[in-house]
Amino acid sequence: MFGDRNTSEIWSLALALMIAVSAVGVAFTSGVAAQSDSDVLVDESFAPTNSTQSAYVDITGATDMNGSGPMAVDVTYEGLAPGESAGNGTVLMSETVNVAAGNVSASEYSLAESDTDYDEIVVSATVQNSGDGSLIASTDWGTLEQVSGGGGGALGGAGGLSLPVIAVLVVGGGYYLTRED
């Protein structure tokens, strides 16, 4: 299988590429919701951690809004302390996002260090005018997480290898594999 030198080089370079890709220091968690005729577009929650940097909602307008102008969508990020329920917590941020036909409009809340004191943060998005939910093609929400350490992924326990050291190893290995005998 690996008897041919050129094939062996390709597999080695592919492995090096996979290692480099796993060194990305940011991870995403999210959920996508297909829309129905509901006016509530997003009603989800997450538990904030020290690595949670922000939460976001992306809203895509339908390509044909039947002559209606941009739709107004209220997006709210609410922190819930132990024993609190949605609607009774602390509003961390609330804004109105205008969604035009065929376009993606976004809302993002950057978490403060004190936001990790909440048990959960509720993310909600609701159209202002009843019935406008049918003019929203899709919504996507999630969190942006920071991965600590030297590179995350398979390299998290690599004994403190940093990205520049790994890059030097990959380049050196590529040179070694492609040199002529």
Rank of each mutant, 00 (worst) to 15 (best):
F28Q: 04
G31D: 00
G31M: 05
A33I: 06
A34G: 10
A34L: 11
S36L: 08
V40S: 12
V42F: 03
D43Q: 06
S45H: 12
A47R: 13
A47L: 03
T49G: 13
S51K: 12
Q53V: 15
V57W: 00
V57E: 00
D58F: 06
D58P: 00
I59C: 02
D64T: 10
N66P: 00
S68Q: 14
S68K: 10
M71Y: 00
V73Q: 02
D74A: 15
V75N: 02
T76E: 11
T76R: 13
Y77L: 10
Y77C: 01
L80C: 04
A81F: 12
E84Q: 14
G87C: 08
T90S: 14
V91T: 11
V91W: 05
V91E: 11
M93I: 09
V97D: 09
V99A: 06
A100N: 12
A101T: 13
V104W: 02
S105C: 08
S105R: 00
S105N: 10
S107K: 01
A112Q: 13
E113H: 02
E113D: 15
T116W: 01
D119A: 10
D119V: 04
L135Q: 04
S138K: 15
S138T: 14
T139V: 15
D140C: 02
G142Y: 09
L144W: 09
E145T: 13
E145C: 09
V147S: 04
S148R: 09
L155T: 10
G157T: 08
G160M: 06
G160C: 09
L161N: 01
L161Y: 10
